[in-house]
Amino acid sequence: MILVFGEEFERDVTYELVALAKRLGDYKVVVSEDFDDIDGDVIRVERLNWKVVKELHDRFKPEGVLFANAPSGMDLAPKLAGITGIPMVTNVIKLENGDRFKATSLTYGGKVLVDLEVDKPSIFVVNRGYYDPNEGRGTPKVERLDLDFEDDVELIEVVKPEEDVDISKAEVVVSVGRGIGDESNIELAKELAELLNGVVAGSRPIIDQGWLPKSRQVGRSGKTVTGKVYIALGISGATEHVEGVKAKNVIAVNTDRDAPIFRIAKVGVVADVNELLPVLIEKLREIKS
């Protein structure tokens, strides 16, 4: 049996864990919030802390435990491993079940993959973005468990970024450069960002012109973006700028097919941003509605 601990703070990752668990065999999903579309057996607990994790682990004695490489998963997994002494693999991007688990971990800053064979029982901390969350959706069978253990760590306050977002932490960043033309087009970029649940950012010239606040600057004298997707619109890709782009996927739109930004892009689109954006936004709106 696989025991999945849902992610408390970035709940959407939970679906990805369920998608993986499904492939590994029987599973139960432990969550501390209401989910109405998780596929399979769901155990609803009041709180998710290490004492609860330990209790459920002892109760179900799973062959594998899955956590997300996310704020609560990265705290609870090693604690459990420390207490129980069972093997733990982190940064997992692929996992198969068999006599032993076969895991692949992404390490050395993404430069190295390592294939591992892991004895059962064991713990896995799974990276985001490798399993389709939709596969984890379905109809849940919810069981409520009344476990409310005192914890040595207590959340006292959640601080949202003041008025402006922190682009360095955002998963999706829509970034604009000089190729955007004039200031009015910033609105189009903002709209695209909204449609993709992302935030808007810019290269230095845009910030210097006062079209976006300084907090939105990407690059050496601005911030480094580390999220999942970085969409560069009309950015040529000067060294100073590229230094601040550490997102996993870069999508670049530029009229110049030799623009250096394409060298770090996964997908490059040779087009004029100002022509492309209205069409793209229209299409995304259709899908949304």
Binding site: G85, V89, D115, L116, E117, V118, A265, V269, A271, L276
Partner: peptide, 28 residues
């Protein structure tokens, strides 16, 4: 403590850039 065995280390495949060209409708 055992339990984890390294099978092999290797380099991930480099993602190739997909360069899209054409008319705006298509590109979108």
């Amino acid at each position: 403590m055992g339990g984890i065995e390294v099978v092999r280390f290797y380099e991930p495949e480099k993602p190739e850039i997909t360069l899209l060209e054409g008319d705006v409708e298509e590109l979108a």
